[in-house]
Design a protein around this nucleic acid. Structure first.
Ligand SMILES: [Mn+2]
Ligand SMILES: [Mn+2]
Ligand SMILES: [Mn+2]
Ligand SMILES: [Mn+2]
Lengths: 232, 232
DNA sequence: AAAATAATTTAGTATATACTAAATTATTTA
DNA sequence: TAAATAATTTAGTATATACTAAATTATTTT
């Protein structure tokens, strides 16, 4: 049987390994709120078991094997479906779902997964805009970038929010910086990296430091060179 | 923190101790599919921890302390609310819910409990007719008896079904022997303890052995001595 | 009540997972 | 490149929980 710990480790490795980069012991330890020593121990176990879930060589970080990645995607699917269900069906707010989903994801059956997927109408994104792996574990990659890389006068659409800190999420919700929102970068201060952003057509604009702007991902909206038709 | 094991032990002790009788090591072991030796070990731990969850003396079985009973009722509430939710909101059948609920009950938060309780309209009974402890952990006791104790020509209303064996539950469902059904005992065979029962006004009657009749609880329906008004 | 049987406990072991402190290896700085 | 710093691993320990085999205690039969 695959334990809760195993599942959370695999998920964490997947999340930290953008593309297929190697993940360091320390990064994992921080993400999971464990000591590096504990992580080393666990990684060895994951690497040694048959079939192996990770590739691990001392001092060189870990990677998921393809089985490990499958399992990570499966649990990620469960996590994100659950988050979506909690919001859509049970009235949770988006800052309350992470913890609950992180416990439930280890307890639900395939049947449960299928039922909530069906009730929700096979959603593609969770409340934070993160893509939900399909039932055959395919996951669409978008070309979003952190808001911190945008500069005036770019326009963009917010597409997802990293990080699960409830305070951050509540703040973003209050500002209206939620997935789907259209924004315009109106100013940037080099000195303190504060971005001034117009959300929709709202006034006044709001200002966010890099702590926030690094956590919010957006896709650039290219201004049509001429004409006034709606962009598709 | 109180672990999943602790919660399942407490629930099992509660369920096996009808009234407040003492529960034997062996009975617990059977109920939990563990060896008696393992149970002894766990009971010692539960008895010794501060505050104690059970009272335990060698060779004399266990009882819940009042804290242990509170915790058992809390987890029982979660179990039964979940079972109800799975049936009502997610389309499970009553033979599919036990296992799922027995995993989920350890993973949900108070918030989750409150939400499903609200969505369901504060149900009093789970799909098997078992009473759901209220949020302040009060549980109504009914005066139902096993069907095996009934004799012709008694009439009764089925009020709950013990046991979680899916095969039994599917059988009962097919027969129409579900909580709420009115029945009449039409025959009893001393030799093999088979009861013939009319369910509602259905024909033909059905016959059940003691394996089934011991698991089905019913409340006797006293025939009004005269008149044809509806009994309240 | 002795013998037989059943129930229960003890002793010793195993696994998964976490921790701390110390040792080692890798990377950066001077 | 040597020293300083950072990252990682090793070694040793702890906890919760389960198991098996053997020992003990309780109950039932003769
Ligand atoms: Mn988790
Ligand atoms: Mn999410
Ligand atoms: Mn359970
Ligand atoms: Mn039930």
């Amino acid at each position: 049987m695959t334990t809760q710990q195993t599942q959370d480790y695999l998920k964490a490795i997947y999340e930290l390994a953008s593309d297929h980069k190697t993940v360091s012991t320390t990064a994992l330890a921080e993400h999971l709120f464990l000591t590096p020593a504990s992580v080393t121990g666990m990684l060895k176990r994951l690497a040694v078991q048959k079939p192996a879930l990770v590739r691990y060589k001392k001092h060189q970080g870990v990677q998921l094997t393809s089985l490990g990645e499958k399992m990570a995607l499966q649990i990620l699917r469960q996590h994100r479906l659950l988050e979506t269900y909690l919001v859509e069906a049970l009235g949770y707010s988006w800052d309350e779902v992470h913890e609950e989903a992180c416990r439930l994801e280890h307890a639900i059956s395939e049947q449960f997964e299928n039922r909530i997927d069906a009730v929700l109408g096979r959603p593609q994104r969770d409340p934070h805009g993160d893509p939900i792996p399909s039932s055959n574990l395919e996951i669409p990659m978008d070309r979003s970038r952190p808001l911190s890389e945008f500069r005036p006068p770019q326009k963009a659409v917010i597409c997802r929010v990293n990080g699960k800190d409830p305070a951050l999420l509540r703040r973003l919700d209050k500002l209206g910086m939620i997935p789907g929102a259209s924004i315009t970068i109106v100013d940037y201060s080099e000195l303190d990296q504060v971005l001034s952003i117009r959300i929709g057509t709202r006034e006044p604009t709001c200002s966010v430091g890099s702590t926030i702007s690094r956590q919010v991902l957006a896709e650039e909206l290219l201004e049509p060179p001429a004409g006034d038709s709606q962009p598709s």
